[in-house]
Design a binder for these strands. Structure first.
Length: 592
RNA sequence: GGCCCCAUCGUCUAGCCUGGUCAGGACGUCAGGUUUUCAUCCUGAAAACAGGGGUUCAAAUCCCCUUGGGGUCACCA
């Protein structure tokens, strides 16, 4: 039998050997010597927070919260080209919405602050430089002057020769005079870390177990870019030390980086934090779940339908011609989210939910997402599946984190959502639905009175899997009376046509009954329609309900019919029934 | 391709560390039932230890190999 699992390291000590501290230069030493558990979530702010990142944040947060620890958010914005302030803000808002709060980090709605800041790496350049200079002086790092083009060429050559590429350490062999003259002329250069030869580095990972790598596998990686910003490797190591991070919990795509980080920590005299690498989240087809998935759907649709100009939405092209051309010119060009959403609407395709905000927009409650995400790669053991944040923070531990990658199962998420929504009280559901509408669908608030809105909530509650379900199925409520389009699907045909009295006949007969109702309430409508059905339709309510449903909504799906009519209001109902009747022949021909 | 990691129903997983229950739960699927539509809801069913070698009285569980999957090889993080 194959080794299914490496023996899992049990509960390694979470505190550090105090001797380690003495190796750390006193002048740079943090005042704090607490042994408090400190975890951090360190996103690079490009685009939106996606569910994989959210799960990482969740695990970091839960680990700290369950142990009286501190949770820190740090923005890794050392890539000037990709980072944006708007994205940072969006990340923080997403975290907040999920209920993940941070003790230290960017200040946002009551979270953040702390004395180990600034928590934006771009504002910590002087700190990195200090450590960089020290490393340079000690010979642990050196300057290299190759241009990116030269390096690309070298890589391509190695590739062609089917050899693994490794930097040739040319910078290390440069005579001091040469370096001095290059520096004097201001030649751009990077700083590379000098990886020790023939050593091995072992990562003690709380999820994966021990991972040993030879330093011969590593080349002298860049730690400072030509623009003066540190690379991820350097910044992360410096900040984790200075911010007293005790546990680094991050995605498995970083396992290969960890030996580099440990080497750096050794060279700098830093402590080595505990590590835990959690698996990646993938799509049902096994591919990595990524923000690009949206672009992929759009691209496939456009190609499939042979669309060669930006389609229109609300009378205007979704993007301008230049943007369209740019987007079409390369698979690497992605539309920004707003444009993507508009294009999807114009094409009438659904974009996969990838970002936390997508799920919010799709009508999931944050607690549901948290519960589902927590279960993706962790389980409390036994048969427990449904739990809240308190349970999670209390029970979460690294030794129950699953090693293998998990596929994101939207059906299961939806089932969880159904359960949480069904567990809400009617008042809670109404409140959530109202908030959702305020944010995404204000037209419902504008069209309905408070009483009608409450009816919308109560009549949809038990049929809703998400907060978006009522919106989707009740779109007809906010349409104008003369804009209802009638489906001619099989169920509609079945309900409306056939031998007399068919749907249209009942509709015509029930119109005066409705018109005669003065107090337009669910109860009065029900009483009259039920009486009509008893007298004229063999007491089969469906015979009357379905035609009415079709007349007012255009299709066969709506909340219970009496609620639907009440929400719509008498005037709209009469107008829609009359209009439907008027279209009798144009819809199904003379046959009816 | 090099290096690293992973492997229980279709999916998420429990069980593995501390070998010995008809391998448990949930989602999904299928078959019935309830319901004015849709969705719910109720009942039931099918469904997995990747393959091969060891160790052992006994292997999903410990060891090795094979196969398959994933990650990573940037002046991104």
């Amino acid at each position: 039998m194959p080794p299914r699992r490496r023996p899992r390291p049990r509960r390694r000590p979470s505190s550090f050997d105090s001797d380690d501290r003495t190796r750390y230069p006193a002048c740079l030493m943090s005042e704090k010597t607490t042994m408090t558990i400190r975890t951090r979530f360190a996103p690079s702010p490009s685009g939106h927070l996606h569910v994989g990142g959210a799960r990482t944040a969740l695990f970091c947060w839960a680990f700290a919260r369950g142990r009286d620890g501190r949770f820190i958010v740090r923005i890794e914005d050392t890539d000037q080209k990709r980072s944006s302030d708007a994205a940072s803000l969006g990340f923080l808002a997403d975290l907040k919405w999920l209920g993940i709060d941070w003790d230290e980090g960017p200040e946002f709605e009551g979270c953040g602050g702390g004395d180990a800041g600034p928590y934006f790496q771009a504002q910590r350049l002087d700190i990195y430089d200090r450590h960089m200079e020290r490393l340079l002086a000690e010979g642990g790092a050196y300057r290299a002057f190759e241009t990116p083009e030269e390096l690309d060429a070298a890589r391509a050559a190695a590739r062609a020769a089917k050899q693994p590429y490794r930097y040739d350490r040319a910078g290390l062999r440069l005579p001091p005079e040469t370096i001095a003259s290059y520096l004097a002329e201001g030649r751009p250069h990077v700083v590379r870390f000098r990886v020790p030869d023939e050593e091995s580095v072992t990562v003690h990972d709380h999820v994966l177990g021990d991972i040993t790598v030879s330093t011969d596998e590593l080349d002298d990686f860049v730690i400072r870019k030509a623009d003066g910003y540190p690379t991820y490797h350097f910044a992360v190591v410096v900040d984790d030390e200075l911010m007293d991070i005790t546990h680094v919990i991050r995605a498995q795509e970083h396992v290969n980086n960890t030996p580099r980080h440990i080497l750096l920590q050794r060279a700098l005299g830093f402590r080595v934090p505990e590590y835990a690498h959690i698996s990646v989240i993938s799509n049902p087809d096994g591919s990595k779940m990524s923000k690009r998935d949206k672009d992929r759907v759009l691209r496939a649709t456009v190609t499939e339908r042979g669309i060669d100009a930006p389609p229109e939405l609300d009378g205007a092209p979704v993007v301008d011609a230049d943007t369209w051309t740019w987007w079409r010119s390369s698979k690497d060009h992605q539309l920004d989210l707003e444009a993507a959403v508009r294009l999807a609407a114009a094409l009438r395709v659904e974009l996969p939910e990838i970002n936390v905000d997508d799920f919010r927009r799709a009508g999931y409650l944050p607690g549901t997402l948290v519960n589902y995400l927590a279960l993706l790669g962790w389980s409390p053991g036994g048969d427990v599946e449904k739990f809240d944040r308190a349970f999670f923070t209390q029970r979460f531990d690294l030794d129950r984190v699953v090693k293998s990658a998990a596929k994101f199962d939207r059906d299961k998420l939806l089932a969880f959502s159904l359960d949480t929504i069904q567990a809400l009280t009617p008042a809670e559901f109404c409140t959530h639905l109202r908030a959702h509408c305020e944010r995404y669908h204000p037209e419902f608030l504008a069209r309905l009175t408070d009483a009608q809105f409450e009816l919308l909530a109560s009549s949809n509650h038990e049929r809703s899997k998400t907060l978006e379900d009522p919106i989707r199925t009740c779109r007809f409520l906010v349409q104008a009376d003369d804009e209802i389009e009638y489906e001619t699907s099989k169920p509609v045909r079945k309900a409306m046509t056939g031998s007399a009295p068919n749907g249209f006949d009942h509709l015509a007969a029930v119109l005066p009954v409705l018109d005669a109702i003065d107090a337009w309430t669910v109860e009065t409508i029900e009483a009259q329609i039920a009486a009509y059905a008893r007298d004229h339709a063999d007491d089969k309510l469906g015979k009357v309900a379905q035609p009415l449903r079709i007349a007012v909504s255009g299709g066969t799906v709506s909340p219970p019919i009496f609620d639907t009519l009440a929400m719509l209001g008498k005037a709209s109902v009469l107008a829609r029934v009359r209009r439907c009747l008027a279209q009798r022949e144009s819809l199904f021909g003379a046959a009816v």
